[in-house]
């Protein structure tokens, strides 16, 4: 049964791929095609029966991100007393995360710097790499893995797990008092506690969806505008000037905005994670 299901889904994805191929043939730009995950190699790799772990374009860009983050930080490892430019850049980033945690959690926040720093850099580089115009090279396509909620979801679950583990390890069952704000009368607490519980449980979803939606929306918008440029240009000089040129100008401006969003979303993810950890570290 499982094998049959696999064949059916494989057929489905092949059909979907054909459809997108057809769309490309007819000169139309499918703004969603950029999010398609395709195996690069190892399409039959399986962790266990039915659990496919093909090395996809998404995994490839994760690998590039990991390599670049490592290379960037490794370049600042000279440990000089008077830092050079690169060391200064890396130390600025670690100092930025250190200050963020110090401001939100306090002295106890220092031990979370490795995780929050990795999280921030991984998301930031993933976001920014998706905006690099490598598509100019034929048959190379940029892929923003942070535009997939499977990825952002895992990151959010990791952050949320840390909150739960730290909270229960540090405060035990007393951690549940997080749902009762300080000095709440009992009668109010009866109503407030369920609301607080829901807002607490929603945190991983909001964390994951915020990043996923922001990244996807920006990339879709860029592709839609790009399709306007192509359609306007192929429609003649009149539509080219009236539609194509303004769309192109807007694309340039929105690309700049997307670079800003890439940084802001990485920062927001790190900031919210540190705020949630603060709840677990310093209960009320």
């Amino acid at each position: 049964m499982a094998a049959e299901d696999g064949i059916v889904t494989a057929e489905k994805s092949m059909m979907a791929a054909e459809k997108t191929f057809e769309a490309a043939e007819t000169g139309k730009v499918d703004p969603m095609k950029q999010f398609t995950i395709e195996p690069v190699f190892g399409s039959d790799w399986q962790l266990a029966d039915g659990i496919n772990i093909a090395f996809t374009n998404s995994a490839l860009w994760m690998a590039i991100t990991a390599a670049l983050v490592t290379a960037f930080v490794a370049g600042g490892m000279k440990r000089q007393l008077v830092p050079g430019r690169w060391q200064m850049a890396v130390e600025t980033m670690t100092g930025f995360i250190d200050d963020l945690l110090e401001a939100n959690i306090g002295k106890a926040g220092r031990k979370y710097v490795p995780y929050i720093f990795t999280l921030f850099m991984f998301i930031l580089f993933g976001n920014l790499l998706g905006l690099v115009p490598v598509g100019l090279i034929p048959s190379v396509h940029a892929f923003t893995f942070t535009s997939h909620f499977t990825v952002t979801g895992v990151l959010a679950i990791m952050s949320f797990s840390i909150v739960l583990i730290v909270g229960f390890a540090k405060h035990g069952l007393h951690f549940f008092s997080l749902f009762v704000p300080k000095d709440t009368p009992f009668l109010m607490a009866v109503f407030i506690a369920p609301i607080e519980l829901v807002s607490f449980m929603v945190r991983p979803f909001s964390l994951a969806l915020r990043l996923f939606v922001a990244m996807m929306a920006g990339h879709v918008l860029l592709k839609v505008l790009a399709s306007f440029v192509i359609a306007g240009g192929s429609g003649g000089i009149g539509t080219g000037v009236l539609v194509g040129v303004p769309s192109f100008v807007l694309m340039v401006a929105i690309s700049a905005l997307e670079i800003l969003v890439a940084g802001i979303q990485a920062y927001v993810f790190a900031l919210l994670t540190s705020l949630y950890i603060n709840d677990a570290e310093n209960l009320h």
Binding site: T9, T36, I53, T56, A66, M121, F149, V151
Partner: peptide, 24 residues
């Protein structure tokens, strides 16, 4: 594709993210 491919790609996405994020 995020939803359309989720059944095929969820395990791979999670696995490789854990691998590369873990490595980093």
């Amino acid at each position: 594709p995020q939803i359309a491919q989720i059944a095929d790609t969820l395990s791979g996405q999670v696995f490789w993210l854990l691998v590369f994020f873990g490595l980093t």
